[in-house]
């Protein structure tokens, strides 16, 4: 544009999408919906050694209105499913969902009468993490993959809302 030539290094130009996505991906506020064993590994991820703060995702918010990344960590039973759905609905756009662990992803080893066989039957999921429970490194990898997904989004185009019956 030529504006840099006049003002020097004090400004730089970029695309709006790139700016918004950059700020979104580096300040993900997670809502840890921790129900079972995965929540303990999530605690370890937040803890001293793995330190989720390096990825800008340390500001835990247990209120769905304030957070934009829902981490479902643990088995979801049929009794819990409406609560999860409600919490997802209460989150403001943009919002992303990480399904942490086998139980949240597919029911895992709990193929039994009270468990929901995967949270993707009720809410859309962006990143799945395998493992029972996943190691903290796996969760960190999932968050980095989510950052890649966020980088490709556009503010002008509405987010592709998955329709779930």
């Amino acid at each position: 544009m030529g504006i840099e030539e006049k003002l020097g290094d004090s400004i730089f130009t970029t695309k709006l999408d790139a700016l918004v996505n950059w700020s979104r991906k580096n300040s993900l506020w997670p809502l840890p919906f921790g129900t079972a064993c995965c929540a303990i590994e999530f605690m370890a991820t937040v803890g001293t050694r793995f330190d989720l703060a390096r990825f800008g995702a340390e500001a835990m918010r247990f209120s769905p209105r304030q957070s934009d990344m829902l981490i479902v960590a643990g088995t979801i039973s049929n009794k819990m499913a409406p609560v999860l759905k409600k919490i997802y609905d209460q989150m403001a756009e943009p919002k992303w969902v990480v399904s942490m662990g086998s139980c949240a992803t597919s029911g895992g080893i709990f193929d039994s009468y009270p468990t929901l066989q995967g949270i993707d039957t009720i809410i859309p999921v962006d990143v799945y993490v395998t493992g029972c429970p996943p190691r903290p490194e796996a969760l960190i990898d999932a968050i980095m993959q989510l950052q890649e997904i966020i980088k490709q989004e556009s503010v002008r185009r509405p987010r592709k809302a998955m329709s779930i019956k």
């Binding site: 088995t75 039973s77 009794k79 009270p114």
Partner: peptide, 30 residues
């Protein structure tokens, strides 16, 4: 309570004595 009821006692009836040990991990996961 009951939001994390996973039917462990029911699943135990279909597992061998050694096969139930992985489910005990997931009871008190701390």
């Amino acid at each position: 309570i009951g939001y994390l009821h996973r039917g462990i006692e029911k699943m135990a009836e279909q597992r061998t004595y050694n096969g139930f040990i992985p489910l005990t991990d997931r009871m008190n996961y701390v």
